[in-house]
Amino acid sequence: MIKYLLTFLVLAGLIWLSVPLITEFTTSEGLNNISSEYVQLSAEKLNIPNTVTAIVVTFRGLDTLGEVTVLFLATAGVGFFLKRKDSEKQKKRPGSEILKTGSGILTPMIIVLGVYIFVHGHLTPGGGFQGGVVIASAFLLLILAYENFKFSHLLIHISESISGFTYVLIGLAGLAILGFNHFLDPRWLGLGEWGKLFSAGAVPIIYSLIGIKVGAEMSSLLDSMRDEGGHE
């Protein structure tokens, strides 16, 4: 009884806190100073049409580096808690004929779509995170279709570590070439022409590395969530 009362009190308190936030809110009529500065700088200094990519990769690049680290830690935690027991063979239901045939046709297309999304991250909506997740969904299709599908864990670990290492290395290259205060600055590679694929310095390379890293991490996460602890 006291528990219901406490729950009710917490919810009522949250409502009481959020009502003034809602009633005093008005949709803004223009950008504030920092946002307009970012929009101008991303076209002027970085040659990137997609402003969100400019913020994620360059202006807040250190945050993205930290985020990739957090993602790696969480994946490693899941893999640690769900250690695979190879000794127990469990029977799995094989995928249907339609799923097998369809996965043979669709998997290369999905992977190509994922690569397209993260390579064009600075021109169109999308980027490393979305493309990596699309690649991981291709691996999910393979897992669902073939019941004994095994990842090459060595390949996943190698691609993940190499992409993470190269990401830091590119950031250090900005530090070394452009001088102090330019960590993760992509402008050392030459800006190129507006709206072309090879433009905006190192931004497409960084986002592709993030895409490969996220794809590898999500695939290994799905793989470790897949089958463990079947005590039958």
């Binding site: 101008q40 913020i55 985020e67 507006w194």
Partner: peptide, 28 residues
Amino acid sequence: QGAMAGVEAVGKVVDPIPSALVLTAIVI
């Protein structure tokens, strides 16, 4: 196109910073 495109675009786009933050938050 090019370097001067951003000045004209300021009055016509929504705020990009919350999009970038939420992009991070979803993955985490």
